[in-house]
Design a protein around this nucleic acid. Structure first.
Lengths: 232, 232
DNA sequence: ATAGTTAGTGACTTTTTGGTCAGTAATTGC
DNA sequence: GCAATTACTGACCAAAAAGTCACTAACTAT
């Protein structure tokens, strides 16, 4: 995010030039992610990215063929490992499905939502049309696998009689949507004041979900609106 | 969206030039909305926008001072009337709060989600940082008022004993998030295949909500996870 | 008809920025 | 030390797109 060696002396001369072949790519993609999320792909100037990473524009082109390659690297970096960890956690879990769902939601928040990775969904949403192949990559490696995680939790809960049976595929989307919206909000509209607490938001979402999924008696009024109901 | 008079003759000569002072601005903003949503603000070429509206670039500059003014016009156009209609509907409604909530969700879908206006949220999300004053306008005139609508439905339901009491402000966000995510998805990732039906998605969201909001006995397992519970 | 008004045009200028490369200096091997 | 290597620099180039304006032609009033 910031050049590691930023020891300006008080006289204002620039920091000594350093050769750090290993560290450059990660510093550049980190800086690029920040700029892409903040300003969008097209409005991001590579010179600014390079400057934030503490190098010149020419150096950026030593490590990335062009702007699009940098964009691909930003997206492809560091997303998959998180999913792998979650998949493993889910495989050997023995508690209730409600607990499992809670773990999934809050684990996601800690591993993704509260980190710099939270900017990626906004980036994908904003640039999907301009980079269809990157969007496809994200779809196959993040969306499909993420949906699969939720699907397994729902199936488990239904099988064990903890959740009522419902349209699983659609429910997955409804469960994930507030999570995505949370990070998208945070990385675009910042005027959700200090009274907005992500943990409370997640907790409310979770509570609504658990009650909404719970097996039990029918809740009245869900099917056809009263106003459109014909006398029987 | 498209030049009204697009009668090319079979010989390939261009359509006759027409003077249509009144119609131009709306046609230009409609074309611009499409391009902005599809490619993003910075990647949109004004020459393309003008061409799609059936005029030259010079004409665009007759009606809008510059690119940013065009962007502002796109956002400010045609959002408020929809909200006004919803506010009125809500004011004189006498049925159950569940029905009211249903009307709000599906009414929003018909009036916004299924129209070209559906692209605006993605546009705002993507460009909020580059146009803080436009984001502020959208916040004050759409977000605040939209949240207020949902707040009144929830307050009404709680007051009448139809809904349990809960953290209303946070619940509002959780209710709105899947709606926004729906239109954002649709205007960016298009690979949600033909098996994805927005109406089903809305119905599932609604059903989860109604059960989640319903007044009634406590559902176990919501508070502290079993795994973290100490013996009493 | 026809002179006057103004919507509309598109070639041109200006600005911005992605991308290049000849040169510089930090590091390594001897 | 000193030469060889190469990470790094930033002035420069070229392409793209915003923005301008002298000119054209559709409409209008008389």
């Amino acid at each position: 995010m910031v050049p590691t060696d930023s020891s300006y002396s008080s006289t204002g001369e620039r920091p000594a030039r350093r050769r750090r072949k290993e560290a450059r790519p990660a510093e550049l993609t980190a800086a690029a992610l920040e700029h892409f999320v903040e300003k969008g792909y097209a409005a991001t100037r590579l010179e600014d990215v390079a400057a934030q990473a503490g190098v010149s524009k020419g150096t950026l082109y030593l490590y990335f063929e062009n702007k699009e390659a940098l964009f691909r690297a930003v997206v492809e970096e560091g997303i998959v490992p998180v999913l792998a960890a979650a998949e493993e956690m889910l495989a050997d879990f023995s508690g209730s499905s409600v607990d499992l769902l809670r773990r999934l939601l809050f684990g996601w928040w800690e591993q993704v939502g509260a980190t710099r990775l939270a900017g990626v969904p906004k980036l994908i949403v904003a640039e999907a049309h301009n980079f269809p192949e990157v969007a496809q990559y994200y779809h196959d490696n993040v969306i499909v696998r993420g949906r699969s995680l939720v699907r397994r939790v729902l199936a488990r809960g239904i099988e064990r009689g903890e959740f009522r049976s419902l349209d699983v595929e659609t429910a997955i989307d409804v469960i994930i949507a507030p999570l995505l919206m949370l990070v998208i909000w945070q990385s675009s509209l910042r005027f959700c004041g200090p009274e907005f607490v992500p943990e409370n938001y997640l907790q409310t979402h979770f509570e609504l979900l658990v009650r909404g999924l719970a097996a039990g008696e029918e809740t009245p009024g869900i099917g056809v609106p009263d106003s459109e109901r014909q006398g029987v």
